[in-house]
Design a binder for these strands. Sequence first.
DNA 1: ATAATCCATGAGCGACGCTCATGTCGCGAG
DNA 2: CTCGCGACATGAGCGTCGCTCATGGATTAT
Lengths: 300, 300
Amino acid sequence: MTTSELAPHELRVLVSVAEAQGFGAGAARLGLTQSAVSHAVRTAERKLGVVLFTRGRQGAAPTDAGVRAVSQARHILRLLDTMGPEARAAAAGGQLTGTVRIAAFRSAAVHILPGVLDLLRSRHPELSPRVDIVREVGAGTTGEVAEGRADLGIATLNPDTYPIPKDVLTGKLFDERYVLVHPAGAAGPRGLPLIDWAENCSSYTRRWWREQDWLPTATVTAEDDGVVLSMVAAGMGMAIVPELSLRGAPGGITAQDLGPDAPSRVVGYVVSPAMASTAAVRDLIRGLRATPVGARAVVV
Amino acid sequence: MTTSELAPHELRVLVSVAEAQGFGAGAARLGLTQSAVSHAVRTAERKLGVVLFTRGRQGAAPTDAGVRAVSQARHILRLLDTMGPEARAAAAGGQLTGTVRIAAFRSAAVHILPGVLDLLRSRHPELSPRVDIVREVGAGTTGEVAEGRADLGIATLNPDTYPIPKDVLTGKLFDERYVLVHPAGAAGPRGLPLIDWAENCSSYTRRWWREQDWLPTATVTAEDDGVVLSMVAAGMGMAIVPELSLRGAPGGITAQDLGPDAPSRVVGYVVSPAMASTAAVRDLIRGLRATPVGARAVVV
DNA sequence: ATAATCCATGAGCGACGCTCATGTCGCGAG
DNA sequence: CTCGCGACATGAGCGTCGCTCATGGATTAT
């Protein structure tokens, strides 16, 4: 046995097979033969001493060891990718090139990122950020980062909702209050149906509802917070939304603070440990911290 | 250009050349020819598009880009190393194999690590920890971790003394007070020479001295804190040492608390971002946090 | 049964990294 | 000034290894 560590092409094969859920499909996406992939997976398994994929009629699925290995493979490949830009930046006064991958939920992407990306561009004109908008359900943006698919994520951090973040590093950015919105014409929210959406983790607002002396007559579920606000503007109901969603909302909406006990969520960033030390990610975090999220939403 | 990312063997060459400060010497330590190393460095430089080493009569020295690349190379190689153990652990119920590299200053290695390593061994009998004892001067243990030479370091964290830790993640473990020690026979410290040692960052105690109404008659510098304590025990002077150094000190020493304004330092851990998510490092940190550093030193 | 769709296997070929031998450059001693 | 030494650079040849092509084996749907 000459070397027991995986070569980059083997790492790529592992990732590709995991994502394509099959050797043949994984081979196709790399422009390789199914045979080459079969060989590569086999030697990788021999080198690591573990079976990485269960093969079956319906393709290949990673084992526990495979899941771990694929995740590490993505991180290593990403580090290899960034070596060039990082080294060149060190030689050229800190100006980065290449790509930085950001995962964010919709309202963060729309309302937080633009300013931060402007700031980033001013420091690194040649660096192209790629933003993936991810529903904050399930593993959400945190999962994207943990799996090595993004370098930095904007996430809602809530110790109650998600378990301790594993495989990622987090930092808090700000607390975000929820506000109640209803059509500008209506006297108040009472009697109107509640409009909710899948991503809106109701655990944040549940406590608040318990302490009220009324409950909405009905609940409607919409696609996302943008749709919710349009529906509210159209007089179809009221909603409880995070402040950030209110930015750039259509007219005809009245927002109402929920008082000292207002539900709130923590918005923060999540970064891959392996990428945390790269100049790109560090500058991004600096930008996030420096961006005033203030202008504390329009609360009537 | 087929691939623009470096192969593992090239990463190894970069690290080796940087450490050996020369192509030939770097080649020797890898069991390669000087020619092979020359070729490897050349192709690496072409792939990254930067000059990584300045060649000269007295060998090779990394450029700025080279320093960055070598550091990243070490991290990538380490990740490649850990892939096998991590994957096997995922398949075998979490029992890790392989090596974990710890950097610690002397008193931490002697007084903190044993318990933590016991704990680690109970969880991972096959995992062999390697401890490097590093003087906490200059970059210290933090530097070892930042450069990818250690996975976890025990360091003194002090915002005044060291700049913001870069390239590493830190966590605080505990505050450690300084105490004054003098020979058991003597009535008090006054009149005795102060015994100090290089590693003992005097900035911690300087403020305290300013507020005293006396100053030591002379200052003697010793090799390390162990030597200092022996000298104190022998009646040769008094010293101000962190509590941790007192553990297992020779007899004949009286320790004296320095009161509410006693100088103190923060002891914490430092981990490489790339390694922070590995099971080995996570278990180590858990162990460090769980280890009661209490038994709060013997203070008279 | 048979077909379809996966993955596994073996032989051959080409690319690439290593070594050996030699070239080039800079610097200090005589 | 030039010689020599100690560094890296360069080029040709060779072995290893990863890729492809062709084919075999296993499992499931029809």
